[in-house]
Every structure is written in structure tokens, then in C-alpha cells.
Write a protein that binds this DNA or RNA. Structure first.
Lengths: 207, 207
DNA sequence: TGTTATTTACACTGTACAGTATAATTAACG
DNA sequence: CGTTAATTATACTGTACAGTGTAAATAACA
């Protein structure tokens, strides 16, 4: 199958593949999984339906390609570096804002909804897929560990504290954004500040 | 249309209607909205398909009947009375446990997933439906107000505090339960305790 | 018991869509 | 250029399912 070892002449098909993937992303995001027919996807991608099937055996297969792209991006975008020179509030606020803008970005919002609706219809399937990616809370747990190391936070159980923080962010921002047309970032700021204040009050190291 | 005012003889059809509704609830919960065909629903309900259509004009219509039943029950089950004789921790813990057992109950878990998947596919539809019911946070806001009145909590902005609490419960319990096969209630207790401690540390009134 | 509203069985229509078949066309690579 | 892998247009198959039509059966009520 490898171009270098195969005796068969193979051409570069990555361009079409990209086009199909992008068309599928757009179609899924705008119409949802079921409504996005393979005909519609092919048309949006500017490609014949047969070509779609030449690249992806089934619709489900194509969807997995879309998911992979989406989740890999997500993973790359959820970084947080601990900075000992910066106030904890500042860093947490920046991080929470990043989460809010990420979920709010229109292109991702649509796909997040589709992912949610597909995953909740088949949670075992969801497990199988998401198991292939690192836990999205990992970078934050690293941050917490660094802050503790730096004697700024008193945390007995970092995974537990990470769950508390993510519960707040997801419960207050992520899920509401999905069920509305995104979040009004200005209106959400007082809530975000309150969450961060609550978190810090709990775990701040007493001097 | 009213039996008392109509000149047409009308019989009691509520039994069949109940049977259809219960069959639909079971079918939707077990198979999801799309997979639950009207034929399947009729069979589970022990009723002919034509009778289903005699009671509900369309599948969507039937689904609304199911939703109505579900959301009304939900509303009734989300009560919390403030008790000045009981510690805040106790009351919040009991409340949070009630939420956890409610989402965990197998019959409701399936329907909650279906509701989620339908609502997230059409958030404007979701708005129209849920707008007909009281905000699910209302009872808790009353509780907060009573606790403040009783000088136990220092809360400037009760709706904001309510959002903080519900964000924690939903982010930590409700959503995870939906995407797993429910929540392991024992394993969740430390997290629940931590959330409540965090909430109380933020809003407890200093003596 | 007779009337008739309601229910049933069953055949049917129309539509939407995943996936396939195939012959013709295009364009990348040597 | 010529070869041929990749792509295209188009027509097609099979299936699933919402919703309808109808005549016969059933059962609630007067």
C-alpha cells in the first residue's frame, strides 16, 4: 500500500481527499449527520459522489475522518502554560476565555453539536472514538500541578480539583453555548469571573 | 370537542392514549428518535399503527406528548425546601444526590439522551418547547434566597450563585451521566462533596 | 341488544437516501 | 506524448419508513 514499496503507479489524491473532508465538515456542521446526504456532501465538496466513495468506504467512515480532524485540532488548541510571574486569576481567566472563544467559533460550534448528537445516540461508539485521544483535561492538570509546585495553590488531589474547574466551565459555558447560538461573551464575563473567584477561594494557599 | 357540549357520542379513549404514550416513551428511550419507527412504537404499545395516528397526527406530535409528560415529571421532582434547622451542607448534599439519582434512573436516562439529541439538532425547536416550562433552576434560587434571609449565606446576586451551583452539578454529574451508562454514585460522592464544599466556602456568611 | 365510535389488519404510496455499476472523461506522471 | 489511475455523469438497486386508504372487527354505551 505504501507508494514507495508498491509496484503500482499511484498518484497524489490528497487534494481531493482534503476537498471531500472540508465539504463534509461544512455539510455536517450545517445540516447535521442525517441531513447531510452523501449527495449533498459531494456537491458541496465539488466532487462526484463516486469519488467520495473512492476515498471513504461508508458515510460513517467519512464521519470518522471528520471527527479525527476536529479532535486533533481541539487537542492542539487546549494548551495552558503555567507562568509563575502572572497572577493565578489572570491565567485562569485567559484559559477560560480561550475555552469560551473556542466553543463559540461558528465553524466549531456546528460540528460540536453534530458530534454531541451522534455520540449521545451511541455512547459506546463515543467511547471507542474518544479513547483514541488524550483526555482534554490533561493540560489543565499539568497547570494545577505546576501552580502547586510553585506554592500558590493548596491542592491535595489535583485530578479532583481539575474536575471541579472543568465542571464549572463546561456547565456554565460549553453546554449552554451548544444549546444556544453560542454564548454572548460580554454577558458571560461576570459568571466567568465568579467561577474563577470561587475556584481560587477554595484552593488558594494561605500565606 | 368537549364531551359535555358535543352532540356527537364520544367514548373514553384515554386508556389507549396512555398505552401509546408509554409505548412511545419506551421505544424512544431504547432506540432513539429516528430508530423508533411508528411501526415499532405501535407494536410496543400493543396497538395498531392506525390507532397511533388516530391519537397523534404525526410522529413529531407524538414526541411532543412524550416530552410534555417527561418535563412535567421533571419539574415536580426538582423541589428543594429550605430548612433552617438543618446544616447547609446537608441540604445541598441531599439536593445534589437527588439530582444524581434522578438523572441516573434508567427510564429517565434514555429519554434524557433522546431529548438532548433532538434538541441539539434543532436548538430553536428546543427553545420553543422548553419555553413552555418553568426554569429548572427556580426552586434552587428560592432556596438560596431563603438561606440568605436566614443569614446563613452572603450572596449579592442569587441568580449568579445559582448558575455557579448548577454549572458544577451539571458539568460534573448530569452531562457525564448522559455520556456514560449513568454515574457510579459511590465513586461520585467525593466529587460531589468537593463541589459543595467549594460552593459553601465561597458564599458562607462570616460570623 | 343495537348503534356506532373506535380499533384493527393489511395493503399501499411516496420519498429519501446509502451504496453500486459502468462507460466515458480527465489529467498526472514517466 | 502515451499510459492508466483517478474522476465523472448518470442511472440504478434496495431498504427503511412516515403517513394513508379501506373494509372488517370490536366493544362501549343508550
Amino acid at each position: 500500500m505504501d507508494a514507495a514499496t508498491s509496484p503500482v503507479k499511484r498518484r497524489d489524491t490528497s487534494k481531493k481527499r482534503e476537498a471531500i473532508l472540508n465539504g463534509a465538515i461544512q455539510a455536517f456542521a450545517e445540516m447535521g449527520y442525517d441531513q447531510a446526504s452523501m449527495d449533498a456532501i459531494a456537491e458541496i465538496a465539488g466532487v462526484s459522489k463516486r469519488t467520495v466513495y473512492n476515498h471513504f468506504r461508508t458515510k460513517e467512515n467519512l464521519f470518522q475522518g471528520v471527527i479525527a480532524k476536529f479532535l486533533e485540532e481541539q487537542q492542539a488548541l487546549k494548551r495552558i502554560e503555567y507562568d509563575p510571574a502572572r497572577a493565578l486569576e489572570d491565567q485562569l481567566t485567559a484559559f477560560a476565555h480561550a475555552e469560551m472563544y473556542l466553543i463559540n467559533s461558528p465553524s466549531r460550534l456546528g460540528l460540536s453539536r453534530v458530534l454531541t448528537s451522534v455520540f449521545i445516540r451511541d455512547i459506546d461508539y463515543a467511547r471507542r472514538i474518544t479513547a483514541q485521544y488524550a483526555s482534554p483535561h490533561e493540560p489543565f492538570m499539568q497547570w494545577l500541578a505546576a501552580a502547586r509546585e510553585d506554592n500558590k495553590l493548596a491542592i491535595d488531589n489535583p485530578p479532583l480539583a481539575a474536575k471541579v474547574f472543568y465542571a464549572m466551565i463546561e456547565g456554565a459555558i460549553t453546554w449552554p453555548a451548544l444549546f444556544q447560538h453560542g454564548i454572548d461573551t460580554e454577558a458571560a464575563k461576570p459568571l466567568l469571573d465568579e467561577l474563577i473567584a470561587t475556584f481560587i477561594e477554595r484552593y488558594r494557599k494561605e500565606e
